[in-house]
Amino acid sequence: MSNTASPRLDAEALTSKERGQWEMVGRRFFRHRAAVVSLVIFLLIVLFAYLGPFLWKWDYKIHSEIPSWAAPSLEHPFGTDKAGRDMLGAMMQATKQSLNVSLVVAIGSTVLGALYGAVAGFYRGWVDSVMMRFLDIMFVIPFLVITGAIAGAIDSSVRWYHMAFILAIFGWTSIARAVRAEVLSLREKEFIEAARSAGGSDWHIIVKHLIPNTMSVIIVSVTLQIAFAILSETTLSFLGLGIQSPDTSLGLLIEAAGASAFNEHWYLFYIPGLMIILIALTINFIGDGLRDAMDPRQTMVRR
């Protein structure tokens, strides 16, 4: 992590104690109220999905002793569905699967996209042209069609890791563009020249010098990627091309709720929908807060 903001740091060191870059980022982030609230909510959702199943008595499976279509009550806070499934248990499992997919997609596609973008930007010339033409091709391919076609072909045994793999393979292009744009200007900087004159190999420069310096772009795109992945995964599941029952996903729950938005089974429709919105919304706010916090032009004062 280099000294990108050193003049300002020096200037502030005169009046206050010296702070590291990440400390500054952390302090700026925690001044962003919406982002902090979102972070808390998001962590609560993660706890709900991963710890909840150990604490709650019902799982996501159908049980004969559960009444069908019971309205929300103390016994079943989110109600039950037609088949006799406790919706709170189902929501925990569904949220867990959707989070599994989106976290793996975020990490996988970011690694792929960052490497691709850094290589293209570092070598420039014909390597860059060829790699960018390939990105053009990926842009033209309809995302839902290609991911749906591959996921649909796995038939009824689609697991969350299949979905994560498929979405990551096709979802990295936006990160590649962002990282490439950043690397194009970074590669002309003196510290890259210094690394090269010290005998650093291309791979060493890309992995040890270029990618760490694009970390702010990368971290922000990880958050956006989580939101993107959760929306794609639930859409595919809704269309019947994603995670299949007996396993469950937020998209599947909404698909199963059908046209119940305004009848007595409204809770089947709204609760999973609001969960998707809550996850995507909080993630977007966290990303927004991180972007502000990592912008070196930003001062400590939030305008």
Binding site: L231, T235, I254, I277, A280
Partner: peptide, 9 residues
Amino acid sequence: LFLAMPVFW
């Protein structure tokens, strides 16, 4: 909010 809302929902 609309950015976070899935089209199918």
